[in-house]
Write a protein that binds this DNA or RNA. Structure first.
Lengths: 211, 211
DNA sequence: GATCAAGTGGTCATGATGTCCACTTAGGAC
DNA sequence: GTCCTAAGTGGACATCATGACCACTTGATC
């Protein structure tokens, strides 16, 4: 599962922005209490476990609370719904990919031709989907894919590549291309194909579109 | 309330195939009872109304039963869940498009080059999404898009076009292209673009891929 | 009109949701 | 070391959807 139960960097870094508001209120020490940090970790571990086994979209707040050994109100205090828990778990991994897109080495980062970079982005997306697809599916309960902040980032990135290649209407066309890496679609394809095969097909799409 | 309790043409045409099974069982008269037909129509009307107003995925069996003025058990007798009601409502329209793909006039039907036919299919899909997108979204509660029988049809069709154009791995690549007409994605794009604009972008995709 | 089964709707047990409130406890102040 | 305060916690509650069960009603056939 997740490693390092004692790595308090995850506890120290607020997962939701509303923590910052709370920090501002206290006089001196807005620090997170030890028991709160412990329970937060329990919740995240239990949620990871639940998401990974079975249908991620069928996981309920009640199940997570029970598995983590905390009351439901404790859960609702920090996370309004299941999707936000999945988002918290995804945060690090998505930001990592975003960093590599912005200033990593080519072909993922700047420096390679657009077609190469798009293909590399697709490949990285397959990695993300393969490792954390269950989290991405868990997040898509209700408001869905396009409400998440990460989507906008992928969209801007792909649109920039299209624009760089001289394609008109980069924004909407980026949406169309991102449809190819929809978590639900990936799950569907994954029943028949290996990640490498899916990557190869996405590679074809990237090069065909940015000929 | 609803009009025309005597309009039995809608009552006579079975919406789901399972009616045929019931017809075959009785000795002489497997006919649907008049009150059953009336209630069926009420349910379908009420469901259409509910799906169209507000979030189609938030509609519950309870709401439909109440709006239709029937008990919940009456609803469950014919439809196991909300998705199956949406499927029943979509049936005719999807079959109509399927017919036009198989034996309609070009460029939708046979006779035109693959790129043209793919573009025409995308355009027809936009029409379907525009008129009945709320039903398509309503169907995607839980088991989702790929469980519906219609998806396989679109997949086979697009794969055949790819194969005709000499593309390898037609099946999986058809999946990728169909990601561009995902109902959820369409809804998202529709907040910024007109159907005509979306069609134009899909046209670009079709011609770029089947260059 | 009598009969029978299909059709109908109320009821029940179950489980999830989100909120509220009284209690506990961590961590700084003195 | 003890006291205090507020953050943190968890049980309880009201609400709602689910899906199944069962007794009653009604339509179609004889």
């Amino acid at each position: 599962m997740m490693n390092a139960p004692d790595s308090d960097d995850t506890a120290r870094r607020p997962v939701r922005a509303d923590r910052d508001d709370l920090l501002g209120s206290g006089s001196a020490p807005g620090r997170e209490r030890a028991d709160a940090a412990r329970n937060r970790q329990r919740v995240l571990d239990a949620a990871t476990e639940l998401f990974a086994s079975g249908d991620p979209r069928a996981v309920t707040m009640e199940q997570i609370a029970r598995a983590a050994g905390v009351g439901r109100a404790t859960l609702y205090r920090r996370y309004p719904d299941v999707a936000s828990i999945a988002t918290a778990l995804l945060d690090d991994h998505e930001r990592d990919l975003q960093q590599r897109l912005l200033c990593g080495r080519p072909p993922l980062g700047p420096g390679a031709p657009p077609a190469e970079r798009l293909a590399a982005f697709f490949a990285a997306m397959v990695d993300l989907l393969e490792c954390f697809g269950f989290l991405l599916l868990a997040r898509e309960t209700g408001p869905a894919r396009y409400a998440a902040g990460a989507y906008d980032f992928w969209r801007v990135h792909v649109a920039a590549l299209l624009r760089e290649a001289g394609v008109d209407g980069a924004g909407p066309r980026a949406d169309l291309l991102l449809g190819a890496v929809d978590p639900e679609l990936y799950r569907h394809q994954r029943t028949r194909l290996t990640p490498a095969q899916i990557t190869a097909h996405l590679d074809w799409l990237a090069r065909e579109v940015l000929a």
